[in-house]
C-alpha cells in the first residue's frame, strides 16, 4: 500500500503525491482488478458504527448487509469495523437485532476519543 497504483484514488491520506493528468490511465480506465480496496472512503463518514463485542451474538447480519464489505470477520466471527472503508451508512446498526443492539452509531466528532474524526482505521481497535 506504499505506492499509489494506476487507476486508483487517494482520498487525502498521506501517501505519494497523486499523479498528474499526463500519467493517469486514459479515459478513466481502471487497469487493475480489485483495487477498490485502495480507494479509502472512511473519511466520508459523519456517524461511525461502534461495535460492542460483549453484546454481539455473532449472527453476522451486519456482515451480510454491509454494502462496503467493511465489517471485518475472521474465522466466522465479527472482529470489528474497517474504518478505512466504512462510509457510516448505519445499515449494520439497523440490521443488528433489536434485542442485541451490538452496533451503535455515534457522531464521528464525539466517537472514540482523540482522532475520532480522522481515519486511523483498523477494526482491531474495536475488537
Amino acid at each position: 500500500m506504499s505506492t499509489l497504483k494506476e487507476g486508483t484514488a487517494d482520498v487525502g491520506i498521506a501517501r505519494e503525491e497523486p499523479k498528474g493528468w499526463r500519467d493517469v490511465p486514459t479515459g478513466g480506465l481502471i487497469t487493475e482488478a480489485g483495487n477498490a480496496m485502495e480507494y479509502e472512503t472512511g473519511d466520508w463518514r459523519t456517524f461511525r458504527p461502534v461495535w460492542h463485542k460483549d453484546r454481539c451474538i455473532q449472527c453476522l447480519f451486519c456482515w451480510v448487509y454491509c454494502p462496503d464489505s467493511a465489517v471485518e470477520v475472521r474465522d466466522g466471527k465479527v472482529v470489528g469495523i474497517d474504518y478505512k472503508h466504512c462510509k457510516g451508512c448505519g445499515i449494520c446498526a439497523n440490521e443488528c437485532p433489536p434485542k442485541v443492539r451490538a452496533i451503535k452509531m455515534e457522531l464521528e466528532s464525539e466517537a472514540a476519543g482523540e482522532g475520532a474524526a480522522g481515519n486511523e482505521g483498523g477494526g482491531k481497535d474495536n475488537a
Binding site: 487517494d10 499523479k19 498528474g20 493517469v24 486514459t26 479515459g27 478513466g28
Partner: peptide, 24 residues
C-alpha cells in the same frame, strides 16, 4: 487476462485529470 474497468466513478480527486487528458 488483463481485466479492466470502463466507466468507473471518478470524483473531484481524479475527474479533472481525465478531462484535461481528453483535451490534450
Amino acid at each position: 487476462d488483463h481485466p479492466v474497468t470502463f466507466g468507473a466513478l471518478d470524483f473531484a480527486d481524479w475527474y479533472f485529470e481525465h478531462k484535461r487528458q481528453e483535451s490534450d
